[in-house]
Simulated assay, not measured.
Amino acid sequence: MTDIAMNDAAGPGGLTVGAAASHAGVTVRTLHHWDAIGLVRPSGRTDGGYRLYSAADVARIHRVLIYRELGLPLDGIGELLDAPTADLTAPLRQQRTQLLDRISRLQAMVDAVDRLIEAANVGILLSAEEQVAIFGQRWKPSWAAGARDRWGGTAQWAQYAERAAGMAPEDWQRIADDIATLENDLAAAERTGVEPGSAEANALAERHRASIAVYFDCTLSMHVCLGRKYAADPGFAAYYDAIEPGLAGWLRDIIDANARDQGIDPDSATWT
């Protein structure tokens, strides 16, 4: 609204506080506060002592709103509005720097959310070639999609996706190396006749549970359920038995024995 139009709307005395607030899109209480702190003081008063805002006053209100939108504190806005023209650029440049920093932080947050969404959708943020290079030739990239299809709606998948979103290729390589070492130790123990329930077997079962806990929190009961799947599911059984014949069943047995030693009945264990 131009000064002339404002004057026409306000009349010779200006706008009342209610009209000024409505025009600027703020509350009357806000204008009272700004008057109290000296940020925007009305130029006139009625005979009864009520505030009257001139066109220049309303223009100042709008300038306050612009600077407040930029994130400037009210005391800083007052200094900026009352500063000589030559001093205007310094606080604005400072605010611009702060805004750019804020944009950078927000963009980093957006990138993190995008990674989380992608991890939840695809299961692992590695190309098929990277997966094979890290996990070995026996690894099938389709396994990640299969896991998502099977467990995508579970709390464990959500936890896995959150952790996977923060993993770089070197993190996956470290995990793959740890798993390879564990599988070799499991195969050697099964091959040499380590008995389920022994201290050595229980330690291996706990190492295996810890390898699952990299992806999501794995209770003893959940570990028992996974052990059953390793032995009963043809795909899992084939994977472990390719490492050492009979390894899938032996792994199930040491998981059951370890859980039993810690007070969990494998026969009644559930996914909890």
Rank of each mutant, 00 (worst) to 15 (best):
A5E: 15
M6R: 13
M6V: 09
A9S: 13
A10Y: 13
G11E: 12
G11F: 12
P12Q: 14
G14N: 09
A19H: 15
G25M: 12
H32Q: 14
H33S: 02
G44T: 06
L52Q: 14
I61S: 06
L65K: 14
I66A: 15
I66M: 14
R68W: 05
E69G: 14
L72W: 01
L74E: 00
G76S: 01
E79S: 12
L81Q: 12
L88E: 10
P91R: 05
R96P: 04
Q98Y: 07
L99Y: 06
R105K: 14
A108G: 15
L116W: 11
E118C: 09
N121I: 04
I124C: 09
L126E: 04
E130S: 14
A133H: 07
A133S: 13
I134G: 09
I134K: 07
G136P: 01
G136V: 08
Q137D: 11
R138P: 02
W143R: 01
G146I: 07
A147L: 12
R150S: 10
W151H: 02
G152M: 05
G153A: 01
W157M: 02
W157K: 02
W157C: 03
A165D: 12
A165G: 11
M167H: 06
A168G: 02
D171F: 00
I175D: 02
L182N: 08
N184M: 10
D185F: 06
L186P: 00
G193F: 03
V194T: 06
E195V: 15
R207D: 04
R209S: 06
A210Y: 00
A213E: 11
H223I: 02
V224K: 01
Y230A: 01
A232M: 03
D233K: 00
F236M: 08
A237Q: 04
A238F: 08
A238D: 13
Y239E: 06
Y240H: 06
G246K: 03
A248I: 02
L251H: 01
D261C: 10
Q262T: 07
G263R: 05
D267V: 07
D267I: 03
W271L: 04
T272S: 14
